[in-house]
Design a protein around this nucleic acid. Structure first.
Lengths: 172, 172
DNA sequence: CAACAACTATTGACGTCAACAATTATTGCT
DNA sequence: AGCAATAATTGTTGACGTCAATAGTTGTTG
């Protein structure tokens, strides 16, 4: 970006106006003062923490979060074209290639030719892939438990429900 | 990682293919409960989406989310050592260097020598930095509103409260 | 039916970004 | 004075996203 090298298009900030709304914080929102005033920003930070914890947890298996995402998707819809994985998971098609390569090397998934379309490949979960998922699921729940430490079960449930709503909005 | 929705918004993939989801989800099998069964994993994906939206919003000013985080922290505790920024924001010290460099280039912050310790530098927000924060705050709330679309105000508040609790647990 | 457009998986190049080690300057300790 | 610890910084490495290009395949259309 505009790092020290500054060779890319060098956008000028253009924010010369100070007028703008006085932005009354209102006693209505007391948390508007701190770093985590904005829910979106909060989500971003917590997402990072969660990802780190998950990655640390998966690290001992040689996989990363992205692999886990693929495995999980394969578990829900048994057999998926790489094109689907790309679209639904949001990864670039070129990224899917490497991920499936890795999973195949570990014996967790395999590519099978599609009967209808010879350019497509159907990625399916193997037995050991399913077993791996079963094993890591409990580790994942341990991590989640650690992350959600200060929340009691009922609160966790409502949190999950709320997050699920905003997740499904984006048609994940 | 850039999860799904935020990215190629211009054109929808339109999965005309097959519908591989007979998908008998068995709630008794945790690893089969779908992609977003785990709250931690859900948080991870939503955090990415949120980050994308925020970044897209800040992009026009030439800054990124990390810059915004620094600015916000500087606004709350006027004047901070880079070491503090690193510790409280969770970024690596080496990352702080570049971020403060950028902010300095844009005139939003400046490094001042510390009177007590000559190896430390105190980073302070400038007037235009403060103005910039004021301006972008409203954009941030717009993004957050977009992200939290399906939630009514009361739900948003409870979500924010819950997230805040688990955020403060990690001494952020 | 033959040419052409669209699509799938794949590879490669390029820039970005975050985590880690190493360096320099400075301080505190003993 | 000597030495460990600390603040800022640089450099390096590996992961990641984006884009462009290619080969093989399918569908369409003139």
């Amino acid at each position: 970006m505009l790092e020290s090298s500054g060779r890319t298009e060098h956008r000028e900030p253009v924010i010369t106006r100070q007028n703008v709304t006085p932005k009354p914080i209102d006693a209505h929102e007391p948390w508007m003062r701190g770093l985590h005033a904005d829910t979106g920003y909060l989500l971003y930070r917590l997402g990072l923490r969660s990802g780190q914890l998950f990655n640390a947890c998966l690290q001992e298996s040689g996989l990363r979060l992205r692999h886990y995402a693929v495995l999980r998707f394969l578990a829900t819809s048994d057999g998926a074209l790489q094109r689907e994985l790309s679209a639904r998971l949001g990864y670039d098609p070129s990224a899917i290639v490497g991920l499936v390569d890795d999973l195949e090397k570990l014996g967790f998934a395999e590519r099978r030719p599609s009967p209808d379309d010879r350019r497509s490949r159907i990625v399916v979960l193997t037995g050991s892939g399913r077993a791996f998922l079963r094993d890591t699921d409990e580790a994942g729940q341990r991590v989640t438990g650690e992350l959600l430490g200060p929340l009691d079960p009922a609160e966790r449930e409502t949190l999950h429900a709320l997050l699920l709503r905003i997740a499904e909005d984006g048609l994940n």
